[in-house]
C-alpha cells in the first residue's frame, strides 16, 4: 500500500509532485529507468521525466498530455511501480545512499514552507552539510540575534526534516566561520 496525493507545481503546470511520505521513493534525484509499468508510460511519451525527492516523485508529462485525463492512470501506475523499488535505476549509485536522502530532505525543507517562514522574517537559511545523520544549517540575517532562532530550528526545520527522513538524526546550527561572518558584517556596515 502506497499512500499518495498530488500537489501541483506552480511554476510548471506539466509537473506534479506525487507526495508519498518518507522512505517510499527508492532513491533521490533524476530517474534513469522506473519499474516496468511506469517505464512504459515514459516510453510511449505520456511521461517526459521522473525525479525522486525524499518524500515525493515529481512527474513531468510529455507535451500534449494533460493531468486531468492522464492523472488517474499515472497514479495507479506510480503506486504499482513504487512497490517494486528494485527495478528503479538512478543515474548514479550515490543517489541510493542515506546521505543523499538526508541531504535532499534538508534541501527540500529549506526550499519549502519552513524555509519560507525564516525568509519571511528577514532571515537567511542554507544547508551547510548533511552526512552521517547530522545536518548543519546555516543562519544569517535577523536570525543571528533572534531569541527564537533555536526554537524555529528545532520545531520547524528539524521537525520537517525528520518527517521526510525519520530515524536518528541530529540537526544543529552551523558554527559560522569568522570570514563569512566578517564579510556579512562588512556588507552591513556599508
Amino acid at each position: 500500500m502506497v499512500a499518495l496525493h498530488p500537489e501541483p507545481i506552480a511554476a510548471d503546470p506539466r509537473s506534479v509532485r506525487w507526495v508519498t511520505g518518507a522512505d517510499v521513493t527508492p532513491f533521490v534525484g533524476p530517474v534513469r529507468h522506473a519499474a516496468p509499468p511506469l517505464e512504459a508510460l515514459v516510453e510511449n511519451g505520456t511521461v517526459e521525466s521522473l525525479c525522486c525527492e525524499s518524500d515525493a516523485v515529481v512527474v513531468r508529462l510529455g507535451a500534449g498530455h494533460d493531468w486531468r485525463t492522464t492523472g488517474a492512470s499515472v497514479r495507479s501506475t506510480l503506486r504499482e511501480a513504487l512497490t517494486d523499488p528494485q527495478h528503479w535505476e538512478a543515474d548514479s549509485a550515490d543517489q541510493w545512499s542515506d546521505d543523499a536522502r538526508l541531504e535532499a530532505a534538508a534541501r527540500e525543507v529549506i526550499a519549502g514552507p519552513a524555509g519560507d517562514y525564516v525568509r519571511s522574517h528577514g532571515g537567511q537559511v542554507w544547508l551547510e552539510s548533511a552526512r552521517g545523520g547530522r545536518v548543519e544549517i546555516g543562519f544569517a540575517g535577523t536570525c543571528s540575534h533572534c531569541p527564537a532562532a533555536g526554537f524555529t530550528l528545532q520545531h520547524r526545520i528539524a521537525a520537517a526534516i525528520r518527517e521526510r527522513h525519520p530515524g536518528e538524526i541530529q540537526v544543529v546550527a552551523a558554527q559560522l566561520e569568522a570570514s563569512r561572518r566578517q564579510r556579512w558584517l562588512t556588507l552591513r556596515r556599508r
Binding site: 500500500m1 502506497v2 499512500a3 499518495l4 496525493h5 498530488p6 501541483p8 503546470p13 506534479v16 493531468w67 486531468r68 492523472g71 488517474a72 499515472v74 497514479r75 495507479s76 503506486r79
Partner: peptide, 13 residues
C-alpha cells in the same frame, strides 16, 4: 490538477 481517486483503496490512500 488531478482529481482524487474513486476506487476504495486508492481513495483511502
Amino acid at each position: 490538477i488531478v482529481p482524487p481517486p474513486v476506487d476504495s483503496t486508492e481513495l483511502r490512500e
